[in-house]
Design a protein around this nucleic acid. Structure first.
Lengths: 336, 336
DNA sequence: ACATTTGACACAATCGATTGAAGTAATCTT
DNA sequence: AAGATTACTTCAATCGATTGTGTCAAATGT
């Protein structure tokens, strides 16, 4: 047979399309024998009701859009695992989109999602402080959104974040306790939400311990690996910090590379702590002290919040903001 | 306005739905002014033609299903990047599914895809040597499939793999050149395709250099991290190999952990080479020698093959098997 | 024995967009 | 000026499944 539809199936079995449909959708309004006969035949011929036809009727896609800046990153990969875990239990699937931290890509994909391709969206935003009205359009369409980790403060949706301020404070304080006097703060974009909050923790920890804040020690890096390498190299040569607090895993890697090449001894000459959810951080040279976010749990929570909204569709669902705790793992890179 | 459709839009603008549709689909058969008027209005009101309605008509979903064993793994994450790159250029999106190497999950998802949710499938299979007839059903539905890295030999689809045999041979030979006499082979499931081929390279390299193959040195591990840790610990304690060739990145990490804990000096007491696409392999302690697969390029190729098939739909497209080259990076873990 | 409920299924409208064919007005031919 | 083009635009069937309403017979109630 070329192409089976519910209609051809109905003809074949001598029953109506409605009965077939009900067989697939577990209606009670159908005889068990009839249902079995239908399902058996369908299985044998490998038939499933067309997804797009069902969707058109029901306006449910059973699909979640997940938008992240990058995939080659244990934090996001683990978060996606968490999201998928929950989605799978609900019979949902994941439409994945990577923004590369490019604002325009984010906008373009979010706008695309207006067509109903996904029932809900979970995203970690690119973070640009631009006009976020494209996000508001989703609310009009009743497509719930949950932000995780990187959020837009001005958009009223549910959020899952970590205690970035406290964790940064603790990490910085830890470096101070190990004797660091000149701690550099590495950040990719100090103006976006997450960079700002983490920096505040750093700044306040310095102040608490009577260390003057030095703007030269705030190192604003880029998305480009090579540029970062040379920025950091220059910093280590010229500014000579004795501690590094990196708000982003990637910058810690770059720092390790530079130190390798310049023969800077960690932790003796330089101590490092970085935000990172890298599972093999203990295997690095030296083992990297990390502020580790509960990535997987964040994914779970984010998905759970989204389904909360999805299942109460139509009703006004109060936004929630869940804050999970990061954990500081002190390893050799900071003298641990 | 509650809900905009092409119909309500038509009424609003005083034109027919067909004209609207043509405005969106870049038909030449429409006046430029009319089109602009439509598109402007649509943009202002944030309207896009419903995805499911279009799909139902066209039987095109502009979606690619990507099935991988895991996501927290630089190899797969990079491959997904490559796939997404190509897909994006074609205006396609990615439906992501993770099997955790569980055969049943793979079967269940592949069967689900029979409903037309995706136009094509790119997958790295779980590898179980079971009945693969569920794959054949896709062919009937004209849904093209491309395997990458891990393939089923008995399924006739396009494939993208690497020169696993040669790379394994070279890696093993390298260990022999550094003086290893007792090289263990770490594998997760030695009966699946990829484990077998890589092992053959290992075996033949041993033979070429007159080293007797010892079955005790083939270490069949599991999916569970803790179990692997104890298996490997036992091996290092009892069998005392002087070299490790790991066919899977994860097992190399486990080995490094064990060595750390047991104070086994690498590369002096034990040399290691592993298949791995980890970008920070040079930053490990010690820097890990790797057989690195061109993950990103594999994703690109796989997606390209899929689009080849997609664009010639209906016609018989000859299967292709592209073999890319892995590269051996000799680092300190093997004395480099 | 007659009324009522229930079970099992069929009918047909509907979801929102696409598209071949047909229609209409304006422009061009000769 | 009649016919032929050209350039838009509309009409209406169609994609495949879902579901409220309706039907009919059997089961149950009194």
């Amino acid at each position: 047979m070329d192409h089976i539809t519910i209609k051809t199936l109905a003809k074949k079995l001598g029953i109506s399309t409605s009965t077939i449909s009900r067989a697939f959708n577990g209606s009670t309004d159908i005889n068990k024998d009839t249902r079995d006969r239908i399902l058996d035949y369908a299985k044998k011929h490998n038939f499933l009701p067309n997804h797009y036809a069902s969707n058109l009727r029901d306006k449910k896609s059973k699909t979640l859009a997940v938008i992240v800046p990058e995939i080659v990153n244990d934090f996001f990969a683990q978060a996606i695992n968490g999201i998928e875990e929950v989605a799978r239990k609900k019979g949902f699937y994941i439409l994945l989109y990577r923004t590369d931290d490019v604002f325009e890509k984010e906008v373009s994909f979010v706008n695309y999602l207006n067509n109903g391709k996904a029932d809900g969206i979970i995203m970690s935003v690119s973070g640009e402080a631009n006009d976020h009205n494209y996000m508001r359009a989703l609310a009009q369409k009743n497509i719930p959104v949950v932000f995780f980790d990187r959020v837009y403060e001005d958009i009223d949706v549910s959020k899952v974040t970590t205690n970035d301020y406290e964790a940064s404070f603790e990490a910085t304080e830890h470096l101070i306790h190990t004797g660091c006097k000149r701690i550099a703060y590495l950040v990719v974009n100090k103006s976006i939400s997450i960079g700002k909050v983490r920096m505040q923790g750093y700044v306040d920890a310095l102040e608490k311990h009577g260390i003057a804040f030095d703007d030269d020690l705030v190192i604003d890096c880029s998305q480009d690996e090579k540029i970062n390498y040379s920025i950091i190299k220059q910093v280590l040569e010229d500014i000579k910090p004795d501690g590094i607090f990196s708000s982003v895993e990637r910058l810690a890697f770059a720092t390790l590379s530079v130190c390798n090449d310049m023969n800077i001894a960690i932790p003796n000459d330089l101590k490092i702590v970085s935000f990172s959810s890298l599972q093999i951080a203990p295997l690095l040279n030296p083992p990297l002290s990390t502020v580790t976010q509960p990535a997987y749990e964040m994914g779970i929570k984010a998905a759970t919040l989204l389904f909360d909204a999805l299942e109460k569709k139509g009703q006004v669902v109060p936004r929630k903001h869940i804050v999970l705790k990061s954990k500081l793992f002190i390893r050799k890179s900071s003298g641990g």
